[in-house]
Design a protein around this nucleic acid. Structure first.
Lengths: 127, 127
DNA sequence: GAGTAGTGCAACCATTTGGTTATACGTTAG
DNA sequence: CTAACGTATAACCAAATGGTTGCACTACTC
């Protein structure tokens, strides 16, 4: 997922009405007007929300007769989840590196030749 | 996570600079000015991005002498991931229900009283 | 063919966003 | 104390957002 794609996806998710539309269309596909019934805002407003979701590929529109059926796109949703998982992985890697450092350090002063400061990534401790 | 919290978190994530700040501060905590060096925009602009991230609780600021140290908050990040996971769970539930329906339906017209749509979950496939 | 339901789209509006520059404040180093 | 660094905040601006109303088009229904 490119940076601009991620921009679009997270922007689309940053609105409770749009998140609700995603939830509803995950459960079952629906026409725009049937979606619009659920909210107090105007039909045009809901239509705009669907357009935003479609632009981000979180949702797909499909014509059926006179109706436009909205269907959630699991693929995009999954990619967004994966991106956040990658963020969490960065943290886990860091913790792992710190643990490795803590495991080496106690002996570090006594072993000048062994383990030549390999994984020493400046080690910012926190908490 | 409340709806307004989710609004704030996803809005904060909907900008590539801010996502980059989250990545950097996940790796190690940094002062605002050291973050600002990495981007072409002004210091004040970066500062604003940090404020947005802080408002969403994706990041925490902590004074250290004259510097303000920015640290990523894994907890909020994880809650966002969980929210998206819940979305995916909605889809999986739906697929499961459809599979159960397909397993019962062929006999449905012949069995009005027996097998009252119970939990027949063989249902392995998705995508 | 006429009416109606569902949609698409444009124009408009207030507010927010993401950026700028400039200025003032607090803290550390000399 | 003064200078320099890091930060905070304000004023300003163009563009985007989230909503509205109004109007036109398409496709069913009668």
């Amino acid at each position: 997922m490119s940076e601009t794609d991620a921009d679009a996806v997270f922007h689309a998710l940053a609105d409770s009405t749009r998140r609700d539309i995603v939830r509803r269309t995950l459960r079952r596909e629906q026409s725009i007007s049937s979606l619009a019934e659920r909210y107090t805002m105007s039909f045009a407003a809901v239509q705009k929300h669907v357009t935003v979701l479609e632009r981000s590929a979180l949702v797909v529109k499909q014509r059926r007769g006179k109706e436009q059926i909205v269907r959630a796109n699991l693929d995009t949703l999954h990619r967004a989840t994966q991106l956040l998982d990658q963020f969490e992985a960065i943290w886990r890697d860091r913790v792992q590196r710190m643990d490795a450092l803590l495991a080496d350090e106690p002996v570090a002063s006594a072993t000048p030749s062994a383990t030549p400061t390999k994984g020493t990534t400046d080690a910012g401790h926190q908490h």
